[in-house]
Every structure is written in structure tokens, then in C-alpha cells.
């Protein structure tokens, strides 16, 4: 009995040893030279493999970083400036610091503001809805509310609010990889500059219909009235196709546009509450913003 066990141990060890030797020589023979810096760079990348850089996974991005001479165009939105400066150090190349970005949802068309006119019961993804028709509301530009953005997010940074039927970005988790921006068939999501304390001012609407039609479809649509353009001291707002857009670089977060917007389509988020002016009965709007403050 013991001889069988002994024999088994010896023969298995022998097979193992022979296999190890063969593998060693095979590895030597078929070795492919790879720049060791690729591994080094890859170690410093976030390993999220989100594709936010435009390359297939972190390894692909690391290869691109090592191979290209000028890496100022390459940027890892997840790791941000810290990662990029570390990478630059390893490679001895220059990078520019970039402003961190965050995704914002440019639609406030909850059922309360934007009446559902028909009901859709097909395959529940936004791409299919938008291929079929303009959606459940009279606004053909707004959010379909089926959460394609939520499905593609690798960082749990976005969820659907069941009450408003709109997606909500969790700023702390958002890495600005841009997956949701690509996924949204209506281009509602935009990557905007991340300001101090996550403060944000943006036009929460993408409706390009004429004012009257937009307003009829949704209470909080931008009607292109240009009131905001007039009050903006920094030329940060442009109105094209009946839709205002606030340039995140020029905007100094003065909040004047928010006050004048007749449809409340410009949102201010994470600002301290204003002093209530007795002349302006805008308590409702203040409340709305407070709710968003809590979510944001």
C-alpha cells in the first residue's frame, strides 16, 4: 500500500518537473519583447477599463501612452491629473493639467413638468425609443427615462430617480469617463467643469423648438427668450435654435441668469440658499433647488 503512495508521489513529481522544464524553455523561446514601461504605466492607471480615454481598456491606453511622443492629447478622466502626472513622470513626457469634469443631466422634464401624452411599452432602452419616435411626451429632445446611461455606468455614479423619471448623477462617484454621454441617444448628458464644492449652473434643457412649442410641451423648458443673455456680465451665454447654453469656462457662477429665467430651466446646484427677497414670490423654485441640492 505504502509503495503505491510512494510511487504516485514520485511519478507525479517527475511529471511536474518535466512540464516545468518544457514550459521554461517554451517561455524563453516564444518571449515577446514588451516595453517594461507599459507595465509600469498600467500599474498607475485606475484599472477601471471603462474606455473613457478612447482606448480599449487600461492596457491599451498604457501602450498608447508609451508609444506616442506627445501625450498631451491623451487623458485618463478617471485617474485625473494625479494619475497623468505620475504617468508623465515615468515616461519623462509633459502633460497639461486639465480641469476635472462631471456629468450633468440637461433635462428637468419630470412627469410633473412634462406631461406624458402616450405610453411606450416596447423594449425598454432609450436607443430603441428614439429610433421609433419622439417619446412619451411632446418634447422630442428630452429624457426618455429608460436609463441607458445607468446601464453603461461602471462607477455606480448615476441612478434613476423614480419620482422624476430622470437620471441623477452622484458627483463624488462620477469620473467623467463619458460612457453615459455616448449612451444617451438624445445627447442630454454633458461633461462640464467641476467647480468648487460641486457647484453647478447650467441650462437643464435641450429643447430646440420655438418658445411656444417648447413651453407647451414642458413647463421647465428653455424657450430661448434671451433674458439670461441680457443679464450675463461675462458673455457666457449663447442662444442658438431657441436654446440657451452656458459656457462652463466663461461662467463665473454669479447666479444672475437663474433669477431671470422665466421657466426655471437654469439650475443652480449646491449653492447656499439665497436670502428670500419679499418682492419675488419664488418660494417654489427655491424648494425645487433645495431638493436638487440634497440629491446632488
Amino acid at each position: 500500500m505504502s509503495s503505491i503512495i510512494l510511487f504516485t508521489i514520485i511519478s507525479l513529481s517527475a511529471i511536474g518537473a518535466i512540464a516545468a522544464i518544457i514550459l521554461y524553455f517554451a517561455a524563453q523561446k516564444f518571449k515577446v519583447f514588451e516595453d517594461p514601461r507599459i507595465d509600469q504605466v498600467e500599474e498607475n492607471l485606475p484599472a477601471a477599463n471603462c474606455g473613457g480615454c478612447g482606448y480599449p481598456g487600461c492596457r491599451g491606453f498604457a501602450e498608447a501612452l508609451v508609444k506616442s511622443d506627445d501625450i498631451s492629447d491623451l487623458y485618463c478622466p478617471v485617474g485625473g491629473n494625479d494619475t497623468m502626472s505620475k504617468v508623465a513622470e515615468i515616461l519623462g513626457k509633459a502633460v497639461e493639467a486639465k480641469d476635472p469634469l462631471v456629468a450633468v443631466i440637461r433635462c428637468s422634464g419630470s412627469p410633473e413638468h412634462r406631461k406624458r401624452e402616450n405610453s411606450y411599452d416596447g423594449a425598454s432602452t432609450c436607443v430603441i425609443v428614439s429610433a421609433l419616435y419622439s417619446g412619451e411626451t411632446a418634447c422630442q429632445y428630452g429624457c426618455h427615462g429608460l436609463g441607458d446611461c445607468v446601464d453603461v455606468c461602471d462607477f455606480e455614479a448615476i441612478y434613476m430617480d423614480k419620482e422624476t423619471d430622470l437620471p441623477v448623477v452622484i458627483d463624488d462617484n462620477c469620473t467623467a469617463c463619458g460612457a453615459c454621454v455616448k449612451a444617451c441617444p438624445n445627447d442630454i448628458i454633458e461633461l462640464r467643469k467641476k467647480n468648487k464644492k460641486d457647484r453647478k449652473i447650467f441650462v437643464s434643457c435641450v429643447n430646440m423648438d420655438k418658445g411656444g412649442i417648447a413651453k407647451k410641451a414642458c413647463d421647465v423648458a428653455c424657450i430661448g427668450c434671451k433674458a439670461c443673455v441680457k443679464v450675463c456680465a461675462y458673455d457666457a451665454i449663447i442662444v442658438e435654435n431657441f436654446l440657451a447654453y452656458i459656457d462652463p469656462v466663461k461662467c463665473k457662477l454669479c447666479r444672475k441668469c437663474v433669477e431671470v429665467c422665466p421657466t426655471n430651466s437654469i439650475l443652480e446646484i449646491n449653492f447656499p440658499p439665497r436670502k428670500v427677497k419679499p418682492a419675488q414670490p419664488e418660494g417654489e423654485k427655491e424648494n425645487d433647488n433645495n431638493i436638487i441640492n440634497q440629491e446632488g
Binding site: 416596447g122 423594449a123 432602452t125 436607443v127 430603441i128 429610433a131
Partner: peptide, 12 residues
């Protein structure tokens, strides 16, 4: 299953 919806999506 909404087979055609997804096939149409893939087709486009």
C-alpha cells in the same frame, strides 16, 4: 421578447 426591436437596433 422584443426580438425585432433589438435586431433593428443591431441592424442600424
Amino acid at each position: 421578447l422584443p426580438l425585432l426591436d433589438y435586431i433593428r437596433l443591431g441592424k442600424s
